[in-house]
Design a protein around this nucleic acid. Structure first.
Lengths: 155, 155
DNA sequence: TTTTTAGTTCGATGTATTGCGAACTAAAAA
DNA sequence: TTTTTAGTTCGCAATACATCGAACTAAAAA
């Protein structure tokens, strides 16, 4: 693949990732900045470089970066003798990522438990179904722990 | 727990589920209708009962129900000699739910693969990190199949 | 001390979303 | 045939959201 073609494809991928992340609740500009920091060969951008690259206002970049930092999506580093911040994608580890998934599952699990507890008839259609889901999710979470251990021992 | 207290708690749970589902991209009213159909003892509601219960306009209910049906969240049944539709929560099976999870993981996996392919330097920070994630997700998806089989054989 | 740099904060504005009510419709009932 | 039922569709109003540009700020450089 030619260099210019590759870079063209990177830009298109940023746009695609942008639309994908919008569905995950990020706002358009924010979603595309995530793409930028993941996709491009340059993996650390300053504030002004992002303004330049994405053609958006300083205030928008400022807010987007604060958001992304708050959500733990990106971080910045600085270099001695250079006042600028260099923003980059956070490379969390797999372990943490799984913990996040577990957390969100446990939240849903808790809601399901509450629904079941509040049912008058514990054999109603919904109650039975939700108990089923509960059981499945519990099975899954238990084994997730094992899977995690197995993966870690291999890597 | 007293009957009135239980019902009060159900209402509060519907509100809580509503806010929770809003974060998953459902609109406020739609999110609360989901809660209603999951939580209450009455598990099948007619159009007018939903209008009545939630105090929202017919048009809003009409749109919300269409949306939820489209997304596969709820369905309706009818009874002979009764023109009304009875809306209820869909009780899909665990298997399907896992397939959904896999699908969304494969989508993200695909994006990650594309990012890596387009990197000039395959040993860059992001490239290395993403390869790591890729490996982890692949491991996970493989084992998910086994887990699924194991669960099915037990139930 | 003054100027520059690297952002942040604060209204303003345009656009999207949400929900409403009124009018409409197709099927069933009278 | 007329009326009722069970919703649907359409246009509007209110609100929320995303982004902007201008003014501001704190630290560093000159």
């Amino acid at each position: 693949m030619e260099e210019s073609e590759r870079i063209q494809k990177q830009k298109e991928l940023i746009e695609f990732i942008g639309r994908h992340n919008e569905k995950d609740g990020f706002q358009p500009v924010t979603a595309r900045i995530m793409g930028l920091l993941m996709v491009m060969d340059k993996e650390e951008y300053t504030f002004d470089e992002i303004v330049e690259e994405m053609q958006i206002s300083k205030s928008t970049v400022s807010n987007a970066l604060r958001n992304l930092e708050l959500r733990g999506v990106l971080e910045y580093v600085t270099y001695p003798g250079d006042r600028k911040r260099y923003f980059r994608f956070v490379s969390g580890d797999i372990d943490e990522m799984i913990v996040e998934v577990e957390k969100s599952m446990l939240q849903k699990l808790d809601i399901i438990k509450q629904i079941i507890e509040l049912k008058k008839n514990p054999d109603s259609r919904n109650a039975k179904f939700l108990k089923n889901v509960l059981e499945g999710m519990n099975f899954f979470i238990e084994h997730l722990e094992k899977l995690k251990a197995e993966y870690k021992s291999k890597h």
